Simulated scan of single mutants.
Amino acid sequence: MSRVAFLGLGHMGLPMAKNLIAAGHEVRGFDLMDAAVEAAKAAGVPVTEFGIDAVSGAEVVITMFPAGRHVISAYQDGLLAAAEPGTLFIESSTIAVDEARTAHELAVAAGHRNIDAPVSGGVVGAENGTLAFMVGGTDEDFAAALPLLEAMGKRIVHCGGPGLGQAAKVCNNMILAVSQIAVAEAFVLGERLGLEHQALFDVVSQASGQCWSITTNCPVPGPVPTSPANRDYQPGFAGALMAKDLGLALQAIEQTSTDARMGRLAQELYAVYAEGPGATRDFSGIITDIREDLV
């Protein structure tokens, strides 16, 4: 079993840390937000006052931060210096590919190991230990991290060298955003043609239009009882986070000169959605914007 520092105990990080403890690992957590700290304590996750205190003596450091600048700043401002030589840093935030590679270079230069291991599966996946991990790093570091990732996830894929886990995450979330918009548009069209939601779901969920956005994240109440649509679009995965991830996708699109028109359009639509109440609602709630836009 490993001694783990888990930095970032929000909606995703806390259940991930709890699953590590349940698997027998020794975990010390840290978060800047008082509410997250109190939630962690209530859940039985030991919390330190400072991040460097959690890192000191740890064999593995997992970070789950809002953005790449937070990761790089934390690495430079004490985390790498506080860690024992050879510590394995697992970066599970969703950040830009070049930021992941910068974090890797900083860790290695400081005498440590590093992989990027962003996740997919949302809060439900984090709670149930069924997350998908997309990993970038060396074969040796991937092998060292695998037992920990398996305690938090069900599907772990080694995507290649440093940064390629984030590359896979960017591509995955671009697909997800485009498909969620398409599903929302189809349900609005079905409504206006007189189709009942359940009837359309029964067809599409078993036909060529079947996808995760239909069978798990159905954007209308009723057909999928566990979908955010049945709890007033409480996330889940908030619209602001999808807008952020699509911003990373747009950055990658432009850096690689890729003709990704659907990805660009999805980024535009989610940027608008996240400017209003969609910032804190589930990203499937974009169906409400689509209804209004089509009036």
Rank of each mutant, 00 (worst) to 15 (best):
residue 30 F to L: 10
residue 211 C to Y: 06
residue 52 I to N: 11
residue 105 E to M: 11
residue 174 M to A: 02
residue 35 A to S: 11
residue 82 A to R: 04
residue 261 R to D: 02
residue 53 D to A: 15
residue 185 E to M: 09
residue 69 R to G: 07
residue 92 S to N: 04
residue 265 L to W: 02
residue 31 D to L: 03
residue 290 I to R: 00
residue 162 P to T: 04
residue 295 V to T: 11
residue 167 A to T: 11
residue 195 L to M: 06
residue 140 E to A: 07
residue 96 A to G: 11
residue 52 I to D: 14
residue 177 A to S: 04
residue 70 H to C: 07
residue 151 A to I: 06
residue 34 D to T: 12
residue 183 V to D: 04
residue 52 I to P: 07
residue 127 E to W: 15
residue 255 Q to K: 14
residue 253 I to N: 00
residue 216 T to N: 04
residue 275 E to W: 06
residue 113 R to V: 11
residue 20 L to F: 14
residue 248 L to Y: 01
residue 281 R to P: 01
residue 24 G to H: 08
residue 244 K to V: 00
residue 151 A to E: 05
residue 213 S to A: 10
residue 253 I to H: 01
residue 228 P to H: 10
residue 84 E to D: 02
residue 60 V to I: 15
residue 34 D to W: 12
residue 112 H to N: 10
residue 188 V to T: 05
residue 107 A to M: 10
residue 281 R to C: 03
residue 135 V to Q: 03
residue 215 T to F: 07
residue 195 L to K: 03
residue 134 M to D: 06
residue 281 R to N: 00
residue 292 E to V: 15
residue 79 L to F: 15
residue 242 M to N: 01
residue 116 D to T: 00
residue 170 V to F: 13
residue 223 P to Q: 10
residue 6 F to D: 14
residue 190 G to T: 08
residue 158 H to I: 08
residue 112 H to D: 15
residue 110 A to F: 12
residue 51 G to R: 08
residue 160 G to M: 05
residue 152 M to N: 06
residue 262 M to V: 03
residue 263 G to K: 01
residue 283 F to T: 13
residue 59 E to Y: 00
residue 160 G to D: 03
residue 251 Q to M: 12
residue 31 D to N: 05
residue 10 G to N: 12
residue 28 R to G: 08
residue 73 S to M: 13
residue 272 V to Y: 14
residue 233 Y to A: 09
residue 50 F to A: 15
residue 16 M to T: 14
residue 288 T to V: 08
residue 10 G to S: 05
residue 74 A to I: 14
residue 3 R to H: 13
residue 37 V to C: 14
residue 180 Q to C: 13
residue 222 G to N: 03
residue 126 A to L: 15
residue 111 G to A: 08
residue 176 L to G: 03
residue 51 G to K: 12
residue 10 G to T: 08
residue 259 D to T: 15
residue 223 P to C: 10
residue 284 S to L: 01
residue 273 Y to D: 01
residue 104 H to E: 14
residue 242 M to T: 01
residue 260 A to E: 06
residue 268 E to D: 05
residue 59 E to N: 02
residue 192 R to T: 05
residue 20 L to A: 07
residue 83 A to K: 12
residue 244 K to T: 00
residue 185 E to I: 05
residue 275 E to H: 07
residue 145 A to L: 00
residue 186 A to D: 08
residue 244 K to Y: 01
residue 72 I to W: 08
residue 209 G to N: 10
residue 150 E to T: 15
residue 3 R to N: 10
residue 252 A to T: 04
residue 294 L to I: 10
residue 231 R to Q: 13
residue 6 F to Q: 12
residue 86 G to P: 09
residue 291 R to N: 09
residue 167 A to K: 09
residue 290 I to C: 00
residue 158 H to W: 15
residue 255 Q to R: 13
residue 228 P to Q: 09
residue 71 V to K: 01
residue 148 L to Q: 05
residue 55 V to A: 12
residue 225 P to L: 10
residue 236 G to H: 09
residue 96 A to D: 09
residue 54 A to Y: 03
residue 180 Q to A: 14
residue 220 V to Y: 00
residue 149 L to F: 03
residue 63 T to V: 11
residue 250 L to W: 00
residue 123 V to T: 06
residue 196 E to Q: 14
residue 39 A to D: 04
residue 205 S to L: 14
residue 229 A to V: 07
residue 84 E to V: 02
residue 175 I to C: 07
residue 55 V to G: 12
residue 164 L to M: 13
